[in-house]
Design a protein around this nucleic acid. Sequence first.
DNA 1: TGCGCCATCCAAAGCGCTTTGGGGTGAGTC
DNA 2: GACTCACCCCAAAGCGCTTTGGATGGCGCA
Lengths: 341, 341
Amino acid sequence: MKLKDLSDLLQLSQTTVSRALNGYPEVSEATRKRVMAAAEAHGYRPNMRARSLATGRAMAIGHVIPLASKHEMVNPVFADFIAGAGEVYSAKGYDMLISIVPDEEQARAYREFRTRGSVDGIIVHAPKVGDRRIHLLNEIEMPFVVHGRASDANEPYSWVDMNNTRAFRRATDFLLDLGHRRIALINGLENMDFAIRRRAGFQEALDARGLAPDPDLMFADEMTESYGHDTARALLARPDAPTAFLVSSIIPSIGVRRAIEELGLHMGRDISVITHDDELSYLKNGADVPVFTATRSSVREAGRRAARMLLEIIEDPDSGARQDLLEAELILGQSTGPARA
Amino acid sequence: MKLKDLSDLLQLSQTTVSRALNGYPEVSEATRKRVMAAAEAHGYRPNMRARSLATGRAMAIGHVIPLASKHEMVNPVFADFIAGAGEVYSAKGYDMLISIVPDEEQARAYREFRTRGSVDGIIVHAPKVGDRRIHLLNEIEMPFVVHGRASDANEPYSWVDMNNTRAFRRATDFLLDLGHRRIALINGLENMDFAIRRRAGFQEALDARGLAPDPDLMFADEMTESYGHDTARALLARPDAPTAFLVSSIIPSIGVRRAIEELGLHMGRDISVITHDDELSYLKNGADVPVFTATRSSVREAGRRAARMLLEIIEDPDSGARQDLLEAELILGQSTGPARA
DNA sequence: TGCGCCATCCAAAGCGCTTTGGGGTGAGTC
DNA sequence: GACTCACCCCAAAGCGCTTTGGATGGCGCA
């Protein structure tokens, strides 16, 4: 069933039918009703490819998801972020195009989205320090929103981010207030912008109390469970083991907990752990009582906001760069306690 | 830069340029080279919308991801499955369209994919018992591959699945061989086909030894960490607590381990746990030594295979239904040991 | 009555590509 | 020298939709 069939059926022109369906005022309410009814009855849906060829709008948003170079992993936060964004897209009639490419092919992927005309805008995931994608996208005039920031970008761009520095500052202060002095930082890869900011927050808190950060207690890697485990295990074997861990995600935190328990220690009593919690749907931080004390910020909500922002920018491309900074909330769980003497 | 610009530039017709670019034999090698070079130099890429309007092929595959009704969760296995499928798509020049919709809107989503012509084929995720999507897709003649099976479908369809029954049969046998008799099954939601099969494997093993399954030891729910924890916690508090757990995913297994350790017990010594392991990239089952004894089957590999199968079906639609059954391998970890008296 | 003005509707021209159905040109054949 | 093939190439017709630039007719108003 195509437009022509429907218009023939109704004894109307394609123009009129198209206008009736798309809510243009040049058609009487009576015919509009008639057209709508017929379309409904025959299950007519416009062919998106033809439509977007005609309008020049793809009605689709592209997500280019980087394959973490080292082990080709796809970060589980994407699943939740995308779920949030997807909600918004389907509500607004947009499709979501996903392309999972190795880091080095990102630029090509963006260019292709542009020249092949397959999307109206792009969400940029996992910005790195010195990320060149922002410049590229501005250059090819493709609307985009970054999930996160690129600290050193010296041109305007729109982003949705969590206040990483503040969150880690608070978390560190919290541990310091409990009397902890030897705190290990189990961070994400520090070529990622978010990881840099988290470390900055950590150091800021130490500086504020005149404490020097110990490089031997600061780690950065892909946030897997075994990274958390192995790092904690090694640290706890040291004579000057840390009394607390500040961890960048709930996944390595699970590993940290495993290491603690393997050694017959008790998390919260012998060793404190505080983590960032993205509120991943399948890895909720406990049911009623939180397992981990955590800085919490829903990555799914970030997905929703980024999607909404991008659609607004597409509607009104000249409205300038926007930004949205989410604050994490500090929640108390069972994983922290006073430092033991 | 569009086709016409390029052909004007080259003093050739659009036909010739198009043919040169798409490898048709009607054009001399000399001109083909010339055309290719010019296309490359000017960064020409055909507009996908126009192309697929002309060819009738969307060059895109749709993934309709169900939002688990209860808590609107998106299962983390999707991330890895999609990563696998995405590899294949980009190698073959296909796009991946994702639409995340609540269960009740699935049918509509499929129909729209068809009528709006936005995809050439569909991957069906998370088939349920009595799933009507298979019938629907056959009816609207949309090529598709199911990740999993729908036991009661009485029409042909193509699928890629893991041998759930066999895997759980082996896992149960393994526990029985170790002397365990009270084994708890922490299963996924049993309106899911895979969960039914896993339970069947569990029961089969018990039956084979003349043991009756105890309904009080069989659980089914969404496979979150806290589901694993809470269930294990409650079970271990019983006077007739189970000596072993058979768990459907590594995520609830992490919860089970948490429960065990909270009670001061030691996994592998006091309580045995065996799990299914989808090889999720961020939740690897330990680094070198597996943490959990597990039936292991890569969901990412399943994604690759399903994608390849679907593209083959699209190439050759009349070739009949295909199927691909992956066997899980049983790997020994530290989470199992002989039943204690 | 005649004029202009809405309110409705339509024919046709694209959007950028593929593909059908030829049409020249030069080499090979008798 | 006429004829047949290949071999290259081209003009133009779609693909299914939107949108421009009218056409038509009914109505109020002077």
